[in-house]
């Protein structure tokens, strides 16, 4: 190779290498934000229903701040190279989807759509060849949410909330039916879909426990379980 060719190839590779570094910095930032989100959201297991809204209020700015990182990523990625780089941030993105979906469920009791999630995360259609929310990442986020909801069903009962498991049950069954419609390969999504089945099963067990106890001890003191201190 003559030295010009060598220099050209070198320059191109250096550019790629620089780009990777810059993306990595953004991803580290994204990662930090989602770690904080996860930290706040892990408190739902010890928070009474009535205080959930204020908990979410605390977390929402952190979620919204993710869109700033996403804007940065979109400005870094060259046109049409979305699929080239997306693996670098997909873990953080899936966590953000998880948070957005959990917010929506806890606030409105419904499943957030892919489109709404995109909006919450500040994705813009004109970037879609650089940064967008793929169906795969969205689905991974939903499964993480269901993993968390199966724990929530258990902890809600500890806190004396016997309705939450029933709500969760209905909600999660819908999601499960949705997933059943897909033809998966032996990949991570398939493996995580298998794990989802165990969450559904766990939730069903809680529903079973709660239903029987409700009936067996109709006007049971369960209903009366109320903590003495009031917390927000």
């Amino acid at each position: 190779m003559d030295s010009q060719t060598l220099a050209n190839l070198h320059q191109l590779l250096d550019q790629e290498s620089d780009l990777r570094e810059k993306i990595r910095d953004q991803v580290n930032d994204f990662d930090k934000k989602t770690r904080i989100l996860v930290g706040i959201l892990s408190k739902i297991h010890s928070t009474r229903s009535e205080s959930i809204p204020s908990l979410i209020q605390t977390a929402r700015p952190v979620l919204y701040s993710c869109s700033e990182t996403i804007v940065e990523l979109a400005s870094l990625i060259p046109p049409n190279q979305f699929w080239r780089w997306k693996d670098m941030w997909c873990n953080s993105l899936r966590t953000a989807v998880f948070a957005a979906a959990l917010f929506e469920y806890l606030t409105n009791g419904i499943l957030i759509s892919l489109e709404s999630t995109s909006n919450v995360l500040g994705m813009q259609d004109r970037w879609k060849d650089r940064v967008n929310l793929s169906a795969e990442d969205y689905l991974h986020g939903l499964i993480t949410m269901v993993n968390e909801l199966s724990r929530l069903a258990v902890n809600a009962v500890i806190l004396g909330d016997f309705e939450q498991p029933l709500k969760i049950s209905a909600f999660v069954k819908d999601i499960f039916s949705g997933f059943s419609m897909l033809n998966l390969k032996n990949d991570t999504l398939r493996r995580r879909f298998d794990s989802l089945k165990y969450d559904v099963k766990k939730i069903e067990e809680v529903v079973y426990d709660v239903s029987l106890r409700k009936l067996v001890s109709k006007d049971s003191s369960f209903q009366a379980v109320k903590p003495t201190s009031n917390e927000s």
Binding site: L111, A135, D174, G178, M181, N183
Partner: peptide
């Protein structure tokens, strides 16, 4: 098993997307 039709439609779309990808 009733599912909200918007969820249903969304997953129908995902099914097509995934099938298309694999094909």
């Amino acid at each position: 098993m009733s599912m909200s039709s918007s969820i249903h439609n969304q997953f129908l779309l995902f099914r097509d997307l995934l099938d298309d990808y694999h094909d």
